[in-house]
Design a protein around this nucleic acid. Structure first.
Lengths: 334, 334
DNA sequence: CTAAACAACGTAAACGTTTACGTAAAAAGC
DNA sequence: GCTTTTTACGTAAACGTTTACGTTGTTTAG
């Protein structure tokens, strides 16, 4: 038998209201009774039932996190930050990995609604009209992480992908490279796909470097395999390539791998810059120069924003986090 | 205003009991009224309140997952499996990363208790007496993942670390290596620390290979840095080394990195076998031969076991999952 | 044709809290 | 000393469900 507030009240010879008041620091009890009650609580090993509390307070002290792919290291960093702040606020996070599956996502949203979660963090995926409408009906605060909504005013936290891609390409150019190729991820990806390609193009144009279609290849995703396939294709259609901008660190590792197999030395013959600054970037050979996003902090900020809306229900402003080039050894300085 | 079962009942001209019966497929209603009620539910966009449900059913449809380090790729695989099964059972998982911090762990356990979670998965860390007693008082099913409890009968899912380490070392020996070093992780780690060292020793002994203290170094953890520090130390005190067994893939990458810096060729001059088979093992140069644990399946099984206890409250048997050597290119066959 | 069984509901208690309201005694104000 | 305020509680309603039990009307059995 689990013990409830009633048991405590009875044993302490007070009413449940008094116990509740003591538990919640609401005025209306004497120090003396507090002592007695606390002692009884200790003796009985009583813990309040959060569910019953939630029923009244209409707060579940839980937030939902929707991520497309749990196993990606990107997500891990986000989640780590989210978890920090959530716990700091006496709440917990339910991670839902949607696998970029619309149906699954809707299912999760339903589940989250039933669970009466207090807020949502929606990460790294396009907020479709369906999702938006559903969330709107739920009347629950939502913050986008590393993604945006074109059609609706939903607060977000992200970096400027195009700008970051520009910086990466610019870095290659500034180091003397001219024949620069790019391996993008999924072109359809509205956040990490086209914008990064655009940033690349923008930098090439700015520096008056010719840039044909052959210099850009984009695959299905942002994984290692996409990198190896991508680079094989790239070097075939653009053999003069001397530097490549990869839209993710995993892609970058893929090209390093192929380069190694083909006997192309990195960075002597081929320079590579990645994107994400995952922990594996420093483990690679050579250590990978890459674009860093403050992933954990972004997760933290997004979560703070959610709690800001919940607690003060004020509207919050979106944030663009700064990116940075972290220089390691995969780019040759000509 | 959120709409409740009352609103549905009123609009459909039935009692809340009937609505509830329809929602839960309990007998006691006609097809006709069902149709009407369902229609009203649709119109109103009603979703039952899981909290109120939980208050009665005494099930929160939530399980707690305690992991020491979220950002490790190991954990990600576990969590991914856990999440799968949890969702399959109409529940969700709350991930708590304890950072191997006793105080934080206890805090989380408290939180989970208040949340009235239905079960616990405790991963990759020693179940201390404190934890055990607390969980026991909670009277909640718990399953250990990749760890064990020496003093108490708590069901677990793991691989036989000593055996796996034996296999790895044996693999090196069978491929003609004799001067085999080992870089262990944290020796204090009762699961991944000493047992792997023991397995290594066991294999060496079995094949009558001398093995001095100098051949084994163990650091603070299982990360990349531990690998680089470890190998630097190893090669100093045991320069004849021709093959090393690393207690984790990250450690293995660390030694590959140092080897590269020192101009030692892998696998020509130095063979390396890792442990874990993380995704980065295939991204490394050369691709890393390693010991594979079916991480995701282990997470899934552990979760299934939790639900087994919850639903049928039968006792479950612990499982030892098979490990396997996945051969890539980091070990030279002499 | 009547008693028994059953189908299709409605009523109300229960789950474990919080909290508005009421009340008695003590403290304060004049 | 009497009113007013304050303190320290207790009572009971509310949160949104599920479910045991009761009730009515209809079907079935004998």
């Amino acid at each position: 038998m689990t013990i409830t507030i009633k048991d405590v009240a009875k044993k302490a010879n007070v009413s449940i209201a008094t116990v509740s008041r003591i538990l919640n620091d609401k005025p209306g009890y004497s120090e003396e009774t507090k002592k007695k009650v606390m002692q009884v609580i200790e003796e009985l090993g009583y813990h309040p039932n959060g569910i019953a509390r939630g029923l009244i307070s209409k707060r579940s002290h839980t937030i939902g996190v929707l991520v497309p792919k749990l196993s990606s290291m990107l997500m891990t960093e986000f989640v780590s930050g989210i978890e920090n702040i959530t716990h700091q606020n006496g709440s917990s996070a339910i991670i839902c990995h949607t696998e970029s599956n619309g149906k699954k996502t809707m299912q999760y949203l339903q589940l989250l609604k039933e669970k009466q979660i207090d807020g949502i963090i929606f990460a790294s995926e396009l907020l479709t009209e369906d999702y938006y409408q559903f969330v709107k009906k739920m009347e629950i605060p939502i913050v986008l992480l590393s993604t945006i909504s074109y059609d609706h005013p939903v607060p977000y936290v992200r970096v400027d992908d195009q700008h970051a891609a520009y910086s990466a390409t610019d870095y290659l150019i500034k180091n003397g490279h001219k024949n620069i190729g790019m391996i993008g991820g999924n072109k359809e990806d509205m956040v990490a796909g086209q914008p990064r390609i655009d940033g690349y193009l923008q930098a090439m144009e700015k520096h008056n470097l010719s840039c044909t279609d052959k210099q850009i290849v984009s695959g299905h995703g942002f994984g290692f395999e996409d990198g190896v396939d991508g680079f094989r294709k790239l070097i075939e259609q653009f053999p003069e390539v001397t530097a490549v901008f990869a839209a993710s660190d995993e892609i970058a590792l893929g090209v390093i791998s192929v380069a190694y197999q083909m006997g192309i030395k990195v960075p002597e013959q081929l320079s590579i810059i990645g994107y994400d600054n995952l922990s594996l970037a420093e483990m690679s050979i050579p250590p990978l120069t890459t674009v860093a996003q403050p992933l954990k902090q972004m997760g933290e900020k997004a979560t703070e924003m959610v709690f800001d809306i919940i607690n003060n229900n004020k509207t919050v402003e979106s944030r663009i986090f700064p990116h940075a080039i972290v220089e390691r050894d995969s780019v040759r300085k000509i």
